[in-house]
Design a protein around this nucleic acid. Structure first.
Length: 596
RNA sequence: GGUCCGAUAGCUCAACUGGAUAGAGCAGCUGCCUUCUAAGCAGCAGGUUCGGGGUUCGAGUCCCUGUCGGAUCACCA
């Protein structure tokens, strides 16, 4: 009975079969609008074809039969073709009973299926920013969703540690760094390397304009700028495994990794395995060459290798340059194949990457399919929209990039400020207080970024993100903390000690029914969210649940319940809400406090 | 130019994949702390769902068309 929808569905199917002699697969059952009485509404228009009656008459007939024979429908009302059904209160009591008895409510049984989720995957030349935050929270949450529906999940990222971008930072550091290190400067490693990336850009620009002033063309000047030549030279040396260059590269990459690691720790995010492009691009190259032999790809006169996708409505795409070096696509081919070798049991991969790369992934999956990998069909590009600022797009050149570390710090400080103002840290130790600020600040940030449909471009307004009231993470955390207070009080009164039996209860408050209807929908919501790769559905669900509970909290004084069964029911109901809030927030990667 | 995505209240977002009078939060205005936490609750106000056609019992949702915004179509990653 955990899910009254199911029971109702089959009751309606039996009814339709009995009345009209036909089986109906697709029933349109939806939540009843708040203005009418009932919890479930059957849309009867589609049934008129087999009932051969008007919608109202069909609804009336089905309603009558359900009341007399289903055992779960108490009464009904008909509005136009809509049949609004009211379930017996004992049905709802049973629903709570089942949820309370089921420790793993919301967690589907382990299926033995495995999947890999890639997210974050930053370049190693600058620190993480707001865009990465959406990516990371999304990827994390989607992997939690997969876990919730019974998958074993492998979280990975690809580190873009190879290429000209890192060489730029290296060149600038070599020229202007004076041996500066994270240790000597006190600057976090990723930020330090980012500083030299900016330094590169500054000097590069200066040199280019100096050269164009001397009469060189823009293109020529860009090529001849000494600092660029140094960077290009370093890339060449790196590929030739020049020891000095490789040493500098590992040192600076190491700084960045340490910096990222600190940021991930603060976020509560970790990975099962990291892949490095410097390790996978050679495999990609091999695979491409095999593809040439097999006649899947072709070589042009200059020696470059191409794939022809005109048959798929796309263009020709280069896979290896004339000099034999690999491109972005080549690396991704290698990485994908390597991953399926490392984890033979995974059935597919989810790539959490911005929607500007939709074309790239379309091509990648096509190529993998052409190479004969059946799993190519199970690769999915979890594409998400850009995060805009009120001033428009983030641009590093204009210094409008919102740094991830800074932002998290600000959220934390705001959480602290507001918590102190509300006088909510009484009785907390310093450590507890700090944990609370982190939970709230980070919770607000994660929730803010996850509540929007991933596919959509979204606006990040700093003033709004910092809000802790309304449709926010802290609102939901607060609801959880409230219930915990109720439970503490109940514990001191020994209410639940003997395991109260509330099954005899046969009348409920409307607010209690409303909560149960939301609770009962949790598992199907999780499945839906997983299917759509959309944590936003869970965020909306958690909000709805918290709202339903707060309404109850404010209209029904829990401890005023006259008889023990009713009191026990309300405590159990509260506990089930707290538990479900905790679980859904866990899917979003958000912790909930016991007091705030 | 081709392809793809988007446009819903002043602002930020929902709307169970075609269902009822399109819902929330923020901002604005009214009330409610002597009962379990007011980071809350109740209420008011706010809409030509970008425009125009079509499909049907029924369209924010599907089709056609136009307008506006964005992404992409690199031997960059």
């Amino acid at each position: 009975m955990m899910n009254p929808d199911q029971s109702l569905r089959s009751a309606i199917q039996q009814t339709v079969q009995h009345l009209y002699g036909q089986d109906v697969e697709q029933l349109q059952l939806q939540p009843t609008n708040a203005e009418f009485e009932g919890s479930h509404t059957l849309v009867c228009f589609p049934l008129t074809k087999i009932s051969k009656m008007k919608p109202e008459e069909t609804a009336q007939a089905i309603g009558d039969h359900l009341v007399n024979h289903s055992g779960i429908v108490a009464r009904f009302n008909v509005v136009k073709g809509f049949l609004n059904l009211v379930l017996h209160d004992r049905v709802w009591v049973e629903v709570l009973h089942d949820i309370a008895a089921n420790k793993s409510f919301g967690q589907l049984p382990v299926s033995g299926r495995e999947i890999m989720v890639e997210f974050s995957s930053p370049n190693t030349n600058k620190p993480l920013h707001l865009g990465h935050l959406r990516n990371i929270f999304l990827g994390w949450s989607v992997s939690e969703l997969y876990k919730a529906i019974g998958y074993t999940v492998h979280r990975v990222q690809i580190i873009n540690d190879r290429g000209i971008h890192i060489c730029k930072s290296m060149a600038a550091w070599k020229l202007y760094g004076n041996g500066e290190t994270p240790g000597s400067s006190g600057i976090k490693g990723d930020h330090l390397v980012g500083k030299y990336y900016v330094e590169f850009d500054k000097n590069y620009k200066a040199q280019v304009s100096e050269l164009t002033a001397k009469g060189l063309s823009q293109e020529e000047a860009e090529r001849q700028a000494p600092i660029m030549q140094l960077a290009v030279d370093m890339l060449r040396k790196w590929e030739a495994k020049d020891p000095e260059t490789v040493a500098l590269w590992s040192m600076m990459n190491g700084w960045v990794y340490d910096g990222f690691e600190a940021t991930y720790r603060k976020m509560g995010v970790e990975f099962d395995k990291l892949y490095y492009e410097s390790d996978t691009y050679l495999l990609g190259k091999e695979e491409v060459l095999k593809g040439v032999e097999a006649g899947i790809f072709f070589k042009k006169e200059d020696g470059s290798v191409w794939v022809d996708l005109t048959g798929d409505g796309l263009d020709q795409k280069v896979l290896l340059r004339a000099d034999g070096t690999s491109v972005y696509m080549t690396q991704d081919i290698g990485t994908a194949i390597l991953r399926f070798r490392d984890f033979p049991k995974i059935e597919g991969q989810v790539y959490t990457v911005g929607n500007e790369q939709e074309y790239h992934f379309k091509v990648l999956f096509l190529i993998l399919g052409k190479l004969g990998y059946a799993w190519a069909k199970k690769c999915y590009h979890l594409s998400y929209g850009m995060v805009d600022l009120p001033t428009g797009k983030m641009k590093s050149r204009e210094g409008t990039v919102v740094d991830a570390d800074d932002l998290m710090q600000e959220m934390l400080e705001e959480a602290e400020k507001q918590t102190r103002e509300l006088g909510k840290i009484e009785g907390l130790s310093d450590i507890e207080a700090r944990e609370l600020f982190e939970m709230i600040g980070l919770g607000a940030l994660k929730f803010f970024l996850l509540k929007v449909d991933p596919k959509k471009r979204m606006l990040f307004d700093p003033n709004e993100s910092i809000q802790l009231q309304g449709f926010t993470g802290p609102f939901i955390q607060y609801t959880h903390a409230r219930i915990k207070a109720i439970q503490r009080k109940a514990a001191t009164m020994n209410i639940m000690d003997s395991g109260v039996d509330f099954s005899t209860l046969n009348s409920l408050e409307p607010a209690e029914r409303d909560i149960l209807a939301v609770l009962a929908a949790y598992e199907s919501k999780v499945m839906e969210a997983a299917q759509h790769y959309s944590p936003a559905l869970i965020a909306n669900y958690a909000y709805e649940l918290a709202k339903a509970y707060n309404h109850f909290y404010q209209t029904v004084p829990i401890f005023n319940a006259e008889d023990p069964a009713r009191l026990g029911f309300r405590i159990a109901l509260s506990a089930a809400v707290a538990d479900t809030i905790k679980k859904s927030m866990h899917i979003l990667g958000i912790h909930v406090p016991d007091r705030m």
